[in-house]
């Protein structure tokens, strides 16, 4: 027991650990932010995992075949493909009126099958496109910051897409809460009749929200194949889309809480990575992020129920004195 504790103490004392937390969080964060904007329009983007997978694959293909392993081209293609897939979700769910959860499930199944199939077609390899390099996006050292001990070690030298991920938290927050379109998205999500009755097209608003959501998925996909790895491998997303979905709902579909929850999950990802090197069984360690998700959802649900109870108690307390 003492030995395990000291192992953890060593991990937590290591600045590299915190740098890793920040480095492994972005795909979850992109997914969570993407889900958040869709959720605000009351359009659950269950298919985020599949969107990430397909856009990641397309990005690698584009960068290898067209861009001579230019990762920037891959990134651009990933974002575009993500946006198109987001549009598809909206088309099926709101124009053809298929249940949006089913569309999401279909998207995830499609993502698995389609990428595995085309991977084989293009490379003749069933699991990785190791032969198709996508190139990696550059890391950035932040002048000034990088020389500060510990903090510099943690914050500087991350990948550019990592920085973009954290910046996007605030961009999305601004978009949702401070712009006209954000206001409309929230109105449609909360009371679609109210929005329609003042002439706002819920179809249009939800389509926009899902396209942006898909683009976030595209960013997450690109991160997997051009930052995390430099090629595509089967099932590369590994449930990060779903974990992002969980983080989004635990954050009440608000960008900042959703981001904090994403970082918490990132923490467990990093921890499992570090613990692996200390001789704790791989199988045990690999479970941690997922266990954290389940525990997180339970805690969130209990909190929600309590808050609701408190709100109702407040309402009734307010009612009583009015009578007397």
């Amino acid at each position: 027991m003492g030995q395990v504790l000291s192992t953890f103490a060593r991990i937590f004392a290591n600045p590299n650990f915190y740098a890793t937390v920040l480095a492994v969080t972005p795909p979850i964060l992109f997914a969570a932010l993407g889900c958040a904007i869709a959720q605000k329009a009351n359009a659950t983007n269950m298919g985020i995992e599949g969107i990430m997978l397909i856009s990641s694959f397309c990005g690698v293909m584009a960068s290898y075949y067209i861009g001579h392993t230019n990762p920037w081209l891959g990134l651009l293609v990933s974002i575009i493909v993500g946006g198109i897939l987001g549009y598809l979700v909206s088309f099926f769910a709101f124009r053809l009126k298929v249940d949006i959860i089913l569309v999401g499930i279909a998207m995830n199944l499609l993502g698995n099958g389609l990428t595995a199939f085309f991977l084989y077609v293009f490379t003749g390899d069933r699991s990785t496109s190791n032969s198709l390099q996508s190139g990696t996006l550059p890391q950035i050292s932040i002048p000034g910051l990088k020389d500060i001990p510990v903090l510099g070690q943690i914050l500087s030298g991350q990948n550019i897409l990592t920085y973009i991920a954290y910046i996007l938290i605030f961009v999305l927050s601004f978009f949702l809460f401070k712009t006209k379109l954000g206001l409309r998205i929230r109105a449609v999500g909360e009371n679609v009749n109210a929005a329609e009755s003042v002439g706002i097209s819920s179809l249009k608003i939800r389509t926009i929200a899902l396209i942006i959501s898909g683009m976030f998925g595209g960013l997450g996909g690109a991160f997997m194949s051009s930052v995390y790895l430099s090629y595509f491998t089967k099932g590369i997303v590994g449930g990060r889309g779903f974990i992002g979905l969980a983080a989004c709902s635990m954050g009440g579909a608000n960008p900042i809480p959703a981001a904090l929850t994403s970082i918490l999950f990132g923490f467990f990802y990093a921890l499992s990575g570090f613990a692996r090197t200390t001789g704790i069984s791989d199988n045990l360690v690999n479970m941690w992020p997922y266990i954290a998700t389940i525990v997180g959802l339970v805690v969130y649900s209990i909190k929600q129920t309590n808050d609701e109870k408190k709100r109702l108690a407040g309402l009734n307390a307010e009612e009583e004195p009015k009578k007397s």
């Binding site: 006209k180 206001l183 409309r184 929230r186 109105a187 909360e190 009371n191 009749n193 109210a194 929005a195 009755s197 003042v198 002439g199 706002i200």
Partner: peptide
């Protein structure tokens, strides 16, 4: 009522002509 509960009164009033 055709109102969005979490928005403010003013936001509800100008919805559609923001």
């Amino acid at each position: 009522f055709m109102l969005v509960p979490s928005l403010t009164v003013a936001e509800n009033v100008v919805l559609g002509i923001e």
